[in-house]
Each structure stands twice: as structure tokens, then as C-alpha cells.
């Protein structure tokens, strides 16, 4: 197990370097002047440009720029924006609400999705099964922003059950609707994945053995069947947590949540390159670590898997 963890961590290094370098090149080496539109309508003063070029090493080639950035990053320094704000502090300020949103979305997915999947997977064909299949199909086809708009209009403006836009420091209750919107697509996948997985395992030998031993149905389902069927579902939920933390740009935009997604989107539009790089680097780290943890969780769930 220990050796496996070390090998996986070593594998992360080239992926981390590759992804961050790719982002760095995409953000910095793009055609166009990084100072365009930074000083209002007028072009920037030559003195300002020279100062910024020196500060951000823009005159060096892209490789040396990247490694200087990486060197600072290792020391926990995400750099600062052109206006002199620390990117690390900006992220620390905005990130908690995005993490809350993503976590809440995954919890909603897990609860509703697994319940819908278990109910249909155990019963098999029938009204409920068709209902879940059709409604998940519909959810999969809806782009997140359409779901967001529709629910915002319906619940926010027409029925006035919730505020259409959340406050600057939202409570968990306020985040409930945005989290549902964010997780709606994955919710459908979780329900289908649970259903398929249960249906496959229901016919397996170990379930037949457990029933033949005379175990109570609740124990057969709860311990034998669920433990094995949940492996793909947990993988999916974990990967989703990693990607939702970076994928909330649309949802945060619709509901006016001051999270990391909105910050990144604004930063891209305003060409705050340091901020963009910082956020993406952070998200990549989160994504890679979450994926590693899921791989390790396999061994806990499925004792047949051994890491040598």
C-alpha cells in the first residue's frame, strides 16, 4: 500500500507540471497585448509597462517565466495581480463558498441519486423504473444554465419561494438551489450508475450464496450488495467533487455567488493572468489529489483489490 501511494504521488508530478505549464502557456503566450484595456481607454504608460515587465519577468522566455512562477508557488506564493492584491488572499477569500457549493451539490447528488438508483435497481421494471429513466434522461439533456435559468424564474421570480440571487455571504440554505442546479446533471448519472450497478450485481453468485445461507434481505442488500455496487458510484462522486469545484462558473454567474468561478471568469475577461493561473493551478492540485484518494478508497471498499 505504502509503495503504491508513493508511486501514484510520483506519477502526479509530470501530470501536474504538464497541466500547469499548459495553462501557463495558454494564458501568457496568447496573441494580444497583456496590457490592452488595463489602463482604461488609453494605452498604458511606457513606465508602467516596463515596471510590470520587470516584475512579472515578461521579457524572459516562457520556460524561465514558468519556472520562476513555479518556484514562488512551491513557497506558497501565488503572486499578485497588477493592482498589487495578493492572489493567494483573493483565493482564500473566495474559495470557501465555492467549496461549500460543490460539497453541497455532491451531497444532494449522493442522497437523491443513490435513493432513486436503489429503488429502481432493486425493483426492476415498472412505473418507478420508467419514471427515473425518463427524468434522468431529461436532466442529462438539459444544459446546466438552462436548468439554472428555469428554476431561477420559476422558484425565484414566479413563486417567490427563494431569493433569485444569493447574498454576498450566503448561508447553506441559500446555496441549496444553486447546489441542486450544479449537481443536477451528475445526479442523473449517479441514479443511472447505481441502478445499472445494482442490477448487474443482483444476479451475481455471492448474492445468491448470501440468500441461500438464509440471511435477512436487509443484510444481503445492505452489506453484500451495496458495498460492491457502490464502488463505481463513489468513484463518480469523487471525480465530480474535483471537477465541480472548477466547473461552477455558470452556476455562480447565474445566482450571483461571489465564488472562485465568478472570480476566474472576471479575471479572464480583465486579463488578470496571474489570478487565472493561480486558480487553475489550485484546481488542478485539488482534482489530482481527490482522484488519488478515490483510488485508495477502492481498497477499503473492495478487499479483492490489493495494491502492491
Amino acid at each position: 500500500m505504502g509503495r503504491y501511494v508513493i508511486r501514484r504521488l510520483l506519477q502526479l508530478i509530470p501530470v501536474f507540471l504538464g497541466t500547469t505549464f499548459l495553462i501557463y502557456v495558454l494564458v501568457w503566450a496568447v496573441p494580444g497585448d497583456p496590457f490592452a484595456g488595463m489602463c482604461g481607454e488609453r494605452p498604458c504608460e511606457p513606465g508602467f509597462i516596463a515596471k510590470m515587465n520587470e516584475k512579472f519577468h515578461l521579457d524572459d522566455n516562457i520556460f524561465s517565466q514558468y519556472f520562476q512562477y513555479l518556484g514562488n508557488l512551491v513557497q506558497g506564493d501565488f503572486g499578485e495581480t497588477y493592482n498589487g492584491n495578493s492572489v493567494g488572499e483573493l483565493i482564500a477569500l473566495r474559495y470557501p463558498v465555492s467549496v461549500q457549493l460543490a460539497a453541497l451539490a455532491v451531497v444532494i447528488e449522493a442522497i437523491i441519486g443513490v435513493i432513486a438508483g436503489v429503488l429502481t435497481g432493486l425493483r426492476g421494471k415498472g412505473f418507478l423504473d420508467n419514471l427515473v429513466l425518463v427524468s434522468t434522461l431529461f436532466l442529462i439533456s438539459l444544459p446546466v444554465f438552462v436548468t439554472g435559468f428555469a428554476l431561477q424564474i420559476l422558484l425565484g421570480f414566479e413563486l417567490e419561494w427563494v431569493d433569485p440571487v444569493v447574498s454576498s455571504d450566503p448561508t447553506l440554505g441559500e446555496l441549496l438551489l444553486p447546489a441542486f442546479v450544479l449537481g443536477s446533471l451528475s445526479l442523473a448519472y449517479v441514479a443511472r450508475l447505481t441502478r445499472t450497478s445494482l442490477m448487474e450485481n443482483k444476479r451475481s453468485d455471492y448474492v445468491r450464496t448470501a440468500v441461500a445461507k438464509g440471511l435477512k434481505p436487509s443484510r444481503v442488500v445492505g452489506v453484500h450488495l451495496m458495498r460492491n455496487s457502490m464502488i463505481p458510484v463513489i468513484t463518480f462522486l469523487g471525480t465530480d467533487l474535483g471537477s465541480l469545484m472548477g466547473g461552477a462558473i455558470v452556476t455562480e454567474g447565474i445566482f450571483g455567488i461571489q465564488g472562485i468561478g465568478k472570480m476566474t471568469y472576471d479575471a479572464i475577461l480583465q486579463k488578470e493572468n496571474i489570478t487565472v493561473t493561480g486558480v487553475v493551478v489550485l484546481l488542478v492540485i485539488v482534482f489530482l489529489i481527490v482522484n488519488l484518494l478515490i483510488d485508495l478508497l477502492y481498497a477499503v471498499l473492495d478487499p479483492r483489490i490489493r495494491y502492491e
Binding site: 501530470v15 495558454l26 471537477s243 472548477g246 466547473g247 462558473i249 476566474t264 479572464i268 484546481l283 488542478v284
Partner: peptide
């Protein structure tokens, strides 16, 4: 590893 929406933007 690149978040899709971010990378695309």
C-alpha cells in the same frame, strides 16, 4: 486534469 469550462474560456 484541466477543468473543462476554465480551459475552454
Amino acid at each position: 486534469g484541466l477543468p473543462f469550462v476554465l480551459g475552454a474560456i
